[in-house]
């Protein structure tokens, strides 16, 4: 327990120092565009409590749905691609091409095709966040242990049991790595999709405040996005620790065993 507290203290130390520095340095700021930290924090509560249902929750909802879509699509495509070398060889050049397109560049296209509503925003998130999941799933499935695979064949373990017990679990360390990368990409794309022709969301609100010269409110939105990222990352850490308990356990066992 003391160990956990100590590591928590170590993790929080630098952010706390940086925030304190920001507060001190900006305390006497007369700059219109760089308001003091206490002014930003002062408007934080009132700004976002009134925009909770109109901006904050819709953003988080789109983020989570788009992220889930990216994870499902990435794993669903990655499993057959990882398991079939010929299919992979045939599709890899096309995948490399699509991957090279920066997802924000697709926003105008998606707007033309799907309008400016929620479907467009979800597509933007999926189109960017799917790649790390897809590529890591392919690698993970390729790396599934040959002896384990032979074991499954010998015991006649096929179909869904094989998929669930061998392929997905065997590839899970790589899949989780891809999911972690995808999460930060999804947050970025959630904001970007809302900055174009939108009427709600955190990205929209930040642009809206900037245009209205509500500078402390604009900064408070950036702080909120940072906090959202930290919370999601912590939540992901809990998920990862549970899903990969065997993996980390096995690795530390090997290290101790020499």
């Amino acid at each position: 327990m003391t160990h956990a507290l100590r590591s928590l203290a170590r993790a929080l130390a630098l952010p706390a120092v940086l925030f304190a520095l920001w507060g001190l340095v900006s305390a006497g700021s007369k700059s219109f565009y760089l308001p003091p930290l206490h002014a930003i924090l002062g408007v934080f509560g009132s700004t976002w409590s009134s925009r909770l249902t109109s901006d904050v929750l819709p953003s988080i909802g789109r983020l989570l749905i788009g992220y889930a879509g990216a994870v499902i699509a990435g794993v669903a495509l990655g499993v057959p691609l990882g398991g079939r070398p010929r299919l992979r060889a045939a599709l890899e050049p096309a995948l490399e091409l699509f991957r090279a397109i920066p997802p924000p560049a697709l926003v105008p296209v998606f707007m033309l095709l799907f309008g400016i509503g929620t479907p467009m925003k979800l597509l933007v998130i999926v189109s960017g966040a799917v790649w790390p999941v897809l590529l890591n799933t392919i690698e993970g499935v390729r790396a599934v242990d040959e002896v384990l695979s032979d074991t499954c064949r010998c015991y006649g373990i096929t179909g869904l049991t094989r998929l669930r017990v061998l392929v997905l679990r065997g590839a899970s360390p790589q899949i989780v790595t891809g999911m972690r990368q995808a999460l930060s990409i999804a947050i970025i794309l959630m904001v970007i999709s809302e900055m174009f022709a939108s009427s709600s969301g955190l990205g929209y609100a930040i642009v809206d405040f900037q245009r209205a010269f509500s500078i402390p409110q604009m900064w408070s939105g950036i702080l909120l996005l940072g906090a959202l990222g930290v919370v999601l990352s912590l939540g992901f850490g809990v998920f990862e620790a549970r899903a990969l308990r065997w993996y980390h356990g096995q690795r530390s066992e090997h290290r101790e065993g020499g």
Binding site: E146, R169, Q250
Partner: peptide, 12 residues
């Protein structure tokens, strides 16, 4: 198999 470390499922 010879390689017991690779023939058991580490997640089970």
């Amino acid at each position: 198999f010879q390689d017991y470390g690779r023939s058991l499922f580490p997640w089970l």
